[in-house]
Simulated scan of single mutants.
Amino acid sequence: MKCALVTGGSRGIGSAICQKLAEDSQYHILINYQSNSDAAQKTLDEVVKKGATAELIKFNVADAEDVKTALTTWQEANPEAIVEVIVNNAGITKDGLFMWMSHEDWTNVINTSLNGFFNVTNFFIQRMLRNKYGRIINMVSVSGVKGTAGQTNYSAAKGAVVAATKALAQEVAKRNITVNAVAPGFIRTDMTGDLDEKELIKLVPVNRFGEAEEVADLVSFLVSKKASYITGEIININGGIYS
Rank of each mutant, 00 (worst) to 15 (best):
T107Q: 15
E46V: 11
K50R: 12
T73I: 03
N115M: 08
K68R: 12
N89S: 03
N36A: 11
N36S: 10
T72S: 12
A39I: 01
N115Y: 02
N88V: 08
L30S: 12
N115L: 09
D66M: 01
N60H: 12
A52M: 02
T69C: 11
W106R: 04
T73R: 13
K94T: 08
K68T: 08
N78Q: 07
N32W: 02
A22M: 09
E65D: 15
G51A: 00
T112R: 02
Q34L: 10
I86F: 05
A81K: 01
E84Q: 02
T69W: 05
K42H: 13
T53C: 07
E46G: 09
T69I: 13
G96Y: 05
K49P: 13
Q19R: 14
L30K: 09
P79A: 08
A77P: 07
A70Y: 03
Q41K: 11
A39F: 01
N78T: 09
T107P: 11
V109P: 00
L114C: 10
Q19V: 06
G51R: 09
G96I: 01
W74F: 15
L30T: 03
H28A: 07
W74G: 00
Y33R: 00
E46W: 08
E23S: 10
E65M: 11
F98T: 14
V67E: 04
L71W: 01
K68W: 06
W74R: 01
I17F: 03
V48K: 15
V61L: 08
E80C: 08
P79Q: 04
K20Y: 08
N60M: 08
D38V: 12
E46L: 14
N89W: 06
Q26L: 11
G96Q: 02
D45E: 14
V83G: 09
K58S: 07
A77M: 01
A54K: 02
K20H: 09
Y27F: 10
S102A: 06
L21G: 08
G96M: 11
S35K: 15
L44E: 00
S35L: 12
I17A: 04
V47F: 00
N108W: 11
A77G: 07
I110T: 02
K94Q: 14
K50Q: 15
V109H: 02
M99T: 15
N32L: 06
G96W: 04
A54Q: 01
A62I: 14
F117Q: 06
E80N: 13
N115C: 10
A62M: 07
V85K: 00
A70T: 05
W106S: 03
N115G: 01
L71V: 06
T53F: 00
V87I: 11
S35V: 14
N78H: 15
S25D: 11
Y27C: 02
Q75R: 08
C18W: 00
I17V: 10
